[in-house]
Design a protein around this nucleic acid. Structure first.
Lengths: 142, 142
DNA sequence: TTGCGTGCAAAGGTTTTGCATGGCA
DNA sequence: TGCCATGCAAAACCTTTGCACGCAA
């Protein structure tokens, strides 16, 4: 899976990502963290390594907005187990949540059979409003 | 609904968007089209007007990638009718396609009932590989 | 006349790229 | 030793912002 040379920087980056498993981190945050802990890595290198990790399926990349930086998250092919794993992002509070649900297997099957489209759950993010924000909106607006 | 002054540029932009109904267009493409037809509008103005139109619900904005420009589409509250409208983006050829399908109503309903999540079809994009690219991959790789 | 809309240019921020250097195998 | 990875700086790109001017109401 992993191609190319193994480098110290690669290990450092992967270690940080693993520590942050379950949450998301931007390239800028990665660089700041590494600088703070005394193991700085160049920005370009971080981008290049992350791109490879995304290709390998070890890391997910989320494009939340066009103007905010991309978010990365370690998944290691394990986090979501053998279930199909989706994410949804709340447009109000910004929360990103994992979803494990059989329903989505059906969705994948449907897209495959009826639309010829092979869905990539890793990269697909549902946008909308989460339960908590819906409650707070209701109680505020009325 | 529409607030503020009515201007010539606003009419021109809206007219172009209506002509492109059913497809997507970037800010850059908008500017080039208008320049080509002899009615140029400043880039900043296009951004500002589109932002308003998005707020008014007349136009949809899709952030497909972090590095590609945002796509805009005229809907006028009508285009997708009462159907739920989704998009999928091919990770290989970059194609962005509309989907109209009852299946997604069920998906919305499921997310609502079982996960408390109010899906925003306007902003949700499915990523994966389209039919044509799947065929070409098969014939190329093997 | 008032004040929003426009257009130009500049700024802001993220991501990519070129090139010389350093490190892995 | 050969080649990929790294790091710095510069470039590229999309989008936003400041400000003076023009136009709608």
């Amino acid at each position: 899976m992993a191609s190319g040379y193994r480098t110290k920087q690669g290990d450092i980056l992967l270690e940080l990502l693993k520590q942050r498993q379950g949450s998301h981190i931007t390239v800028n945050e990665v660089c700041e963290c590494l600088r703070a802990q005394g193991t700085p890595i160049g920005t370009a290198t971080v981008y290049r390594r992350l791109e490879k990790l995304v290709d390998e399926g070890v890391v997910n990349k989320y494009n939340i907005d066009n103007n905010s930086p991309a978010c990365f998250e370690y998944i290691g092919g394990e986090n979501c187990g053998d279930e199909v794993c989706f994410h949804y992002k709340c447009e109000k509070c910004g929360k990103l949540v994992h979803l494990h649900c059989e329903e989505f297997k059906e969705l994948c099957g449907h897209l495959d059979k009826h639309h010829g489209f092979l869905l990539d759950p890793m990269r697909t993010v549902f946008y909308g409003i989460c339960e908590e924000c819906r409650k707070s909106i209701k109680s505020t607006e009325q």
